[in-house]
Structures are given as structure tokens and as C-alpha cells.
């Protein structure tokens, strides 16, 4: 474990806690894409299949349980909670996430480190996570006003993978870790997808104005 990865995990955890807090405190999920949240559940389920089989550390296991639990409860709130589900506007959250799931799965079957169930699922989860934010970004572009909590949620979510990029650089040079193209390139793409959001988020923060993404 290094400071970059810890910072990344904490940023990731904070983003999810922030979203869960927004939904529970405001009893609203306005501006949040259910499609993206469902993709994250798929990412965690396929990445943590080895949770019961492989023990790395207490931290690793507890964080996997927390990520699984929080992401599933966010989808539950948005789909089934009697009050929250009224605030979900499915007419604007129209991104067909099957167009992300299938290509990522096919790609994971073709490009992976080993053709085993665990490895292919792990690779699939990395490819899918790289593009999972797209429905949410599309939804933000359609939203006239983005509330601060949602903006902060997306910013923290993008920042966490940027910390992971630093973690991989550290591990490669300091721990002379071997090259790992799949997580590295997926992580690079994932962070790049946030680039324009980061630009508008920082601009709105500097100019103290409402966050607005160009359509």
C-alpha cells in the first residue's frame, strides 16, 4: 500500500458516501444516472468475485464489502425506495448501457492476461469501469443546473482513478512492479474521459459560478 493508492481509495469511498448521503438526506436522486450506478454494481461484483476465495488484507476485504454494499444500496434506493424512486427521471437517463457492457465483455474475452473466469471478469470490470461514468456525464450535459453534491461526487470519482495512476507509477518505479497494460490503459482512458468535466468543474469553482457542462 502506498499514499497514492490510499488517497485514491479514500477519495473513491468519499465519493460514494457523499452520493449515499445526498440520496438519504435529501430523499432525492435528481441528476444521478441510475445506468451509471448499475454499471458500478456490475464493476464491483465482477471485480470482487474472489472476495470469498482470496484474502489480501483486512483493509482489502473490508473495503470490497463496503464498496459492494454501498453501490448496491444506491441502486436499491433509486429503484425501489418509495420516495427516492419518484425523483428519478428515466426520460433523461437514456444511455443504453448494454452498448458499454457487451463491447467491454467481448474485449475482455479477446484481450486479457489469462483466459480464466476470474481473470476475464477482472479485466471486464476494468474496461467497464473506464466507461461507466458516460451515462452520468451525458445526464449532466442535459441537466440545466447541476447541484453541488452531484458535481462534487463526479469530481471525486474522477480524481480517485487519477490517484491510482500515480500509484501505478510509484509501484512500477519504486516497487519495480511489472508492467500491467490493462489496468494502466483502462485507468488512463477513465481519467481522460473526465478531462472536460474537470475543466468545467474547476472553472466553475474558480469563478464561483454554477457548474454547467456545454450540451
Amino acid at each position: 500500500m502506498n499514499a497514492f493508492r490510499l488517497a485514491g481509495d479514500m477519495t473513491h469511498l468519499l465519493s460514494i458516501i457523499l452520493l449515499l448521503h445526498k440520496i438519504r438526506a435529501m430523499k432525492s436522486c435528481a441528476g444521478i444516472s441510475l445506468r451509471t450506478q448499475e454499471l458500478y454494481v456490475i464493476v464491483f461484483v465482477t471485480r470482487y468475485v474472489d472476495l470469498s476465495m482470496k484474502y489480501y488484507s483486512f483493509y482489502n476485504s473490508i473495503m470490497k464489502i463496503v464498496f459492494l454494499g454501498t453501490s448496491i444500496s444506491i441502486v436499491w434506493y433509486m429503484r425501489y425506495h418509495k420516495v427516492v424512486k419518484q425523483t428519478y427521471n428515466k426520460d433523461v437517463d437514456t444511455f443504453r448501457h448494454i452498448f458499454l457492457i457487451l463491447p467491454c465483455f467481448v474485449l475482455a474475452l479477446l484481450i486479457n492476461r489469462a483466459f480464466t473466469v476470474i481473470e476475464v471478469l477482472w479485466t471486464f470490470s476494468l474496461y467497464l469501469e473506464a466507461v461507466a461514468i458516460l451515462p452520468q456525464l451525458v445526464l449532466l450535459q442535459r441537466s440545466r443546473n447541476i447541484d453541488n453534491l452531484t458535481g462534487n461526487y463526479v469530481f471525486l470519482l474522477g480524481a480517485y482513478r487519477a490517484f491510482y495512476l500515480l500509484n501505478w507509477i510509484y509501484r512500477f518505479f519504486i516497487e519495480n512492479h511489472q508492467v500491467r497494460w490493462i489496468p494502466w490503459l483502462s485507468g488512463l482512458l477513465q481519467t481522460a474521459i473526465y478531462a472536460d468535466f474537470f475543466y468545467y468543474y474547476i472553472k466553475s469553482w474558480k469563478n464561483r459560478e454554477k457548474l454547467k457542462l456545454p450540451a
Partner: peptide, 10 residues
């Protein structure tokens, strides 16, 4: 072995 080591991250 390096195989499983690759999955030590979240």
C-alpha cells in the same frame, strides 16, 4: 506468483 498479485488493488 504474479498472477494473483495483480489483483491486490481495489
Amino acid at each position: 506468483d504474479t498472477e494473483t498479485e495483480a489483483h491486490d488493488e481495489l
